[in-house]
Design a protein around this nucleic acid. Sequence first.
DNA 1: TAGATTGTTAATCGATTAACAATC
DNA 2: TAGATTGTTAATCGATTAACAATC
Lengths: 226, 226
Amino acid sequence: MATQMKPSISSRTVGRLCVYRRILSQLLQKGSEYIFSRDLAAISGVSASQVRQDLMNVPAWGTPQNGYTTEKLLLAVNGCLGQTREMNSVLLGAGHLGQAILHYFNETQPKLKMKAIFEADATLVGSPLYGVPVFPVQELDEKICLLNAQVAILAVPESEAQEIAETLVSAGICSILNFTPARLQLPAHVFVENNDIQLSLERVAFYAGQAMSEPASQTLSEGSLA
Amino acid sequence: MATQMKPSISSRTVGRLCVYRRILSQLLQKGSEYIFSRDLAAISGVSASQVRQDLMNVPAWGTPQNGYTTEKLLLAVNGCLGQTREMNSVLLGAGHLGQAILHYFNETQPKLKMKAIFEADATLVGSPLYGVPVFPVQELDEKICLLNAQVAILAVPESEAQEIAETLVSAGICSILNFTPARLQLPAHVFVENNDIQLSLERVAFYAGQAMSEPASQTLSEGSLA
DNA sequence: TAGATTGTTAATCGATTAACAATC
DNA sequence: TAGATTGTTAATCGATTAACAATC
């Protein structure tokens, strides 16, 4: 008999659940005790059907009377998304982008521990950033194995991305957040999340051009939820 | 009779066409004269069917013998994506993220002219960044209308995003690249491209956790092309 | 020519939306 | 209770993949 396949949640649904989580957290701070799927949908910018469909993965339990209890729903979504185990991560590249990421990181990712930064520019090496040590990228090979990291964030120039990614994978990294435009060629077991800022710019430029050449047409608010 | 609808290209296709363009440009520099859909697909990380389907929008003309002429295909893709008119843009927020974006901007977006940066931190105001003047965000209202900008890039704190976006829209901005986690509530004619770095982090954390708890399963390389 | 690739149409797949019985 | 909302299934929609005649 084949082993039961996990019904693993789709990437899009995970993204929306993260959005719901953030919104529920904000609502709770504002003191909202209950919320209807319709309202959560409006704030998130998706349909109510979509919200209820997504919440089936959690699962969540609401009532026709009050909808969902904000706190209970937040806990449930957290339980669905939240890792129980802490994970170690490394950052490649301490330029402006790297530092911007690091800033978000410390504020929003309590489960991910940033252990080290690797940087090519010698002037940035040495003094810690946000309390994280910065090593020269030349020492990546020798240091990475000692860090026991599972997650890596790539904020290096495109030309170095593939080689560094391969080093990371051979050291046991299984998830990469890739901010370079490079399309990484890696073993299938490695999860790669691409965030291509250059592509975002190109896309917004395209639709802006469209909007200018056909000013009457109603452009969709695209990309609202990845 | 209803006016003929433009067959406007989907957001995903636009994204892939941008990727093809970048790859074709690199191939041309390396001296590759011809390319088959299969090879372009392999480099892009999509299927050959997908490539040919996408290229129908361009349109492109290849031969069974040689595939596509790299230079001709690049020109055709450019013609499909490329705006003929130049557009003005503004950047909101001159922190690390803003400066990182600005760096990409100057390197890759010849058609978009960055006219001004608005920043809340007084210590950053005054001296230009990459040749672009930096104004205090308090002067946004009075200055924005003079700039004749169509595109805005939001790299401000989440709490300020909605209000600033509304100001931008009332000043004629029709396309916004939103780097904040805020879900902007704006008129339907405004194109919004969200690039939520916090969400990228949350998603990679989720899948890393998945990979750790079920090490045997083969995780898909997700998000390879938005 | 024979064989591989193209452009395009048809089939499949997955994701979103609609519908609705159950229910508070 | 009556009415609105939930959880869930069915229908729709769009995007990806497969198939294949045309062709160099």
